[in-house]
Design a protein around this nucleic acid. Sequence first.
DNA 1: CCGAAATACTTAACAGAGCTAAGTTATCAC
DNA 2: GTGATAACTTAGCTCTGTTAAGTATTTCGG
Lengths: 181, 181
Amino acid sequence: MPASMRAHARDSARELLEIVPLVMRTVAAELRAAGELPAPAHFGVLMAIGERSRTLSELALLRGVSLPSMSNSVAALAQHGWVRRAAHARDRRTVLVEMTGAGRAVLERVGRAAQARLSEALAPLDPKARRELTAGLAVLRRVFAAPPAAAGARLPTRKLEDRRTTVQRGRAAAGRLGRAS
Amino acid sequence: MPASMRAHARDSARELLEIVPLVMRTVAAELRAAGELPAPAHFGVLMAIGERSRTLSELALLRGVSLPSMSNSVAALAQHGWVRRAAHARDRRTVLVEMTGAGRAVLERVGRAAQARLSEALAPLDPKARRELTAGLAVLRRVFAAPPAAAGARLPTRKLEDRRTTVQRGRAAAGRLGRAS
DNA sequence: CCGAAATACTTAACAGAGCTAAGTTATCAC
DNA sequence: GTGATAACTTAGCTCTGTTAAGTATTTCGG
């Protein structure tokens, strides 16, 4: 790789580090302000499930989070009645997560609201800027859509020695699939 | 605004909603993997303080978070010795947060490491894609850099059915700045 | 100049997403 | 069947963020 390209990659990296969190907080705020959805991150999950039913592993991979994380998120969504756990026909280990009517409705409403708000922010852009934004987003999607997470997974958890510790009790979400039924 | 533009804005909005969280996850993971920095979100704060000393309110506004949130973050950074709380010359209510040598060092190291990792991810891009990415990021910066959030600032509509009672009694304590020194 | 209002924080209690490590149950390979 | 593997779940933790309710300090109205 030529030095100039490496330099460019470094600059882009710095830009990403600086800009993405800013965009993220606005997007998250929009989703929150759009109401109902208690968890901004759940929007993407809901969208994925909306396309078609998915297994937990599929969802975790798609969203680039760990399995326990996704299990938790799905539990939360299920508690709201937006998704339903269903048994997989052939493999009883896997959980198929499918959308409910309520889920489809909330996805529609929240999506509309968030889009409307974001559109407002994007409205002042001239056509050239719009094209650039679209192209840039496409590149981002290519790069980050499927992160195999080669990233340093092994990190000995650091602990902040004396920080105010917010003790919280687990929230235990009752029995999952009515296996006993 | 013509219908086509509105439609485009809507599509971009949807793209943002879908892609940005994905990118964010990777960026956060990179920062975490880069070591030392226990808090991905602190990177931006550190950068802001690095430019020049800031008050808490300034930082909270810049990063778009609440004052207590920023107070907490700064407390964490201070505990690591990366920033220092200093008295404001004229207004003793405000806290000036300034960077220490250690802070500058860690900012430099972590920035370098994260850039290196991200650069790897961006390396496979061809020149055209690089240009598109750069242009797109520039647009994002323009749009999201300074959102004073005319967005739903006042959203008193809490409707989570399960709102806990939160009975609490305050106790208070002295400020953390050595006022007695 | 004094009391009320406004500012700038801090403390407290909590929610929610993320993680790892360690189970549990089901499938598969032999 | 036994052992390995795969798909989840549970448990315990960290970190970021929230609102509500305090404490200092400054500013302003009279």
